[in-house]
Amino acid sequence: MFVMMVLSYAITAFIDLKSNYKKQDKVKLAVYFTLMAISCAIGSISGYVEKMPSPAEPIKNIIFTLMGK
């Protein structure tokens, strides 16, 4: 699962950047790969973890407290 994830992300990044890899400067590539890595990590973790923390719950709680429900 983990390997699949990394592979598919690598392929995506490869095809995504293939045409203009050389044109990009280092900072951009760094940000790009950091974000890809984060998303890849989340993707592979959520394959194992039963319930991922989701922003829906806290938002719901905050709003319900604000609205006084």
Binding site: T12, I15, D16, S19
Partner: peptide, 9 residues
């Protein structure tokens, strides 16, 4: 823009 890359993906 080389869109056909994603097309291939």
């Amino acid at each position: 823009v080389k869109n056909n890359k994603l097309f291939c993906v």
